[in-house]
């Protein structure tokens, strides 16, 4: 536990020093711009979509960015010969990511609260962001394992967005109406993610909430075990040790 805290604090410090938090903050300002320039005064329905895009895509990118820095500077080698476990390493990165996503959430929520109208279950939203960010940070690990450089990771993230994020947004905006297609969306994690976020603004059927929650909890657990299992392979191949 002690070394997990050391690693987490180290992650946060490096996210500051390497400008990763600043980039995340800059993106928050862009989202504020989006909120500001929409004509909508009540952003309740729109808000989960912004958080959805930020929590999923930024979680993937932030993990990738920190891991590629470690690879580039050789610090992964130094970490690998330190008395830390794979779980400590993976959890420290995912938790640092979650904190960054929560920072964005706080900024956007405060803006919406003071300058727009918003009616949202903030506690529920916090829980949803933590779970979604955790899941997608682990997706970030997997994409990084299979990418040679940051550009390849970006390409992987774009593919993920096209395959998993766009269909869910299209369905929510009413562009996908086919019942079978709608049902098939329950197979992908982004559907569960958006459902949990939207459930903080409107009512959903209990079974749908339960299914989404179960999907992400179970998915995160399995993904964590898989990321942990594949870590050694990455360390030898990607870490250049």
């Amino acid at each position: 536990m002690h070394n997990f805290i050391v690693l987490l604090l180290g992650e946060i410090e490096r996210m500051k020093k390497y400008g990763i938090l600043a980039a995340s903050l800059a993106l928050s300002l862009i989202w504020i711009g989006v909120l500001h320039f929409t004509e909508i005064q009540d952003v309740t329905a729109f808000f989960p979509f912004l958080i959805f895009i930020d929590t999923t895509s930024m979680a993937i990118l932030l993990v990738g960015a920190t891991m590629f820095y470690e690879k580039q500077e050789g610090t992964i080698k130094s970490l690998l010969v330190s008395p830390i476990s794979k779980s400590d390493y993976i959890l420290a990165k995912t938790c640092a990511n979650i904190l960054s996503n929560l920072e964005t959430l706080a900024i956007l929520y405060l803006y919406a609260l003071f300058f727009k109208e918003i009616n949202i279950n903030i506690i529920g939203l916090l829980g949803a962001v933590i779970l979604i960010s955790f899941f997608h940070s682990l997706i970030g690990f997997l994409l990084t394992y299979h990418s040679r450089d940051f550009t390849e990771l970006l390409m992987g993230m774009v593919k993920y967005a096209f395959i998993f994020m766009v269909p869910v947004i299209l369905e929510q905006t009413g562009l996908i109406k086919n019942l079978l297609a709608k049902k098939l969306l329950y197979l992908i994690p982004t559907k569960s993610s958006l459902t949990l976020l939207q459930a903080t603004t409107r009512n959903f059927a209990n079974w749908e909430l339960f299914l989404s929650l179960l999907y992400l909890l179970l998915g995160s657990s399995l993904l964590f075990l898989f990321v942990r299992l594949k870590f050694d392979e990455y360390a030898v191949k990607g870490g250049g040790v």
Partner: peptide, 14 residues
């Protein structure tokens, strides 16, 4: 054990 690598292994912005 202590390991001394040949190539640099430090965070460049720290």
């Amino acid at each position: 054990i202590g390991v001394g690598f040949e190539m640099p292994v430090h965070f460049s912005k720290l």
